[in-house]
């Protein structure tokens, strides 16, 4: 505390001094000082960004052009191989599979999360007894550690002893026991389903916030003109909510593209690569096969795809501000 006080006095003395000099000189040093202060405020953010975002991204891009293996860690040598990592990746049948899976996974997850999140947000928009408590319960998937969550889902979706198939078999007239996680046709569906469960809280929370912002008078005025129910949603809620919807969708896409833990926990990309996405393939290449160069190349491809959506988001955002 004492030090701060001393510094404060010194600063005041320092700022008092230029007043004694000529007016022009005072203004000059004043603006310089202001600039310095401004820079000083920016420096921590810039250092942070360069250190924790700039460096890893640049390192990853460079690594994509190197033969970066376990040997590199000891010798420090990572020979430059040009586009070889990319050629190998593009020539790999699993890569093509993972691109298709990434698209299906992202599209399916976003569609499910958004529709269900929107439905639940609209449901809770109408206040009723215990709605606050129920709404906070919907957030639970967010609070559960993903490893625990996927372990429970694996048990629920197990073919022979899983809760879901036990319930199905108890239903009258139903005689199926689907191989949720072990058939190549259903595994991706199951993984998307779990990811939807995980994404609903995010969608619901943001959309619910957006709904709260829409003035009640609009609905009252609309009701006078006969716009209720679906028509009120179509002509009042949806247009008013559009900026929020854009944010939810674009952020959702970027988050979903890079999902790793859900898939690793449920299927580990299997069976027979049927749930392999670019991110799980990249993880596997880098951290199981220790081919860090090819893994980085895959990571870079994913970054570029995410970047496209980030740019879309920024442009839409700017347009919203301009409006």
């Amino acid at each position: 505390m004492a030090e701060v006080a001393t510094e404060g006095r010194a600063a005041r003395r320092a700022s008092a001094r230029p007043a004694a000099g000529g007016p022009a000189k005072a203004r000059g040093s004043h603006t310089l000082r202001t600039r310095l202060v401004e820079v000083a405020f920016v420096v921590p953010a810039v250092v942070y960004l360069v250190l924790f975002f700039g460096y890893p991204v640049v390192k990853n891009i460079v690594m994509g052009f190197q033969a970066y293996t376990t040997k590199t860690f000891f010798t420090g040598e990572a020979p430059w191989v040009g586009l070889e990592n990319y050629r190998n990746v593009f020539g790999d049948a699993i890569f093509n599979r993972s691109v298709v899976n990434t698209l299906l996974f992202t599209a399916g997850s976003i569609a499910g999360q958004f529709v269900l999140g929107m439905a639940i947000a609209l449901f809770f928009h109408k206040r009723f007894a215990l709605s606050g408590v129920l709404r906070s319960l919907i957030l639970l998937p967010w609070l559960i550690p993903m490893i625990a969550g996927t372990a429970v889902w694996r048990w629920i979706l197990d073919t022979d002893n899983g809760a879901l198939n036990r319930i199905l078999s108890a239903l009258p007239g139903v005689d199926v026991s689907p191989n949720w996680l072990t058939s190549t046709s259903l595994a991706l569906v199951a993984v998307i389903g779990v990811n939807i469960w995980l994404g609903i809280p995010f969608n619901m929370t943001i959309l619910y916030g957006g709904l709260q912002e829409i003035p009640e008078e609009l609905y009252e005025a609309g009701a006078l003109d006969g716009a209720t129910g679906w028509r009120a949603f179509r002509h009042i809620t949806w247009p008013m909510l559009r900026p929020v919807v854009t944010v939810v969708l674009v952020l959702g896409v970027v988050y979903t593209l890079k999902v790793l833990d859900v898939i690793l926990g449920l299927t580990n990309g299997g069976p027979a690569n049927s749930t392999q996405t670019i991110s799980t393939f990249s993880y596997d290449t880098s951290f199981r096969q220790f081919d860090f160069g090819a893994g980085a190349a895959l990571g870079n491809i994913l970054i570029v795809i995410s970047l496209v959506f980030a740019v879309v988001y920024l442009r839409l955002n700017r347009r919203a501000i301009d409006e």
Binding site: D158, T159, D160, N179, L181, G270, A272
Partner: peptide
């Protein structure tokens, strides 16, 4: 022949 559960792959 169903002597091995399909869950063997996970």
């Amino acid at each position: 022949q169903k002597s091995l559960s399909q869950s063997t792959v996970t």
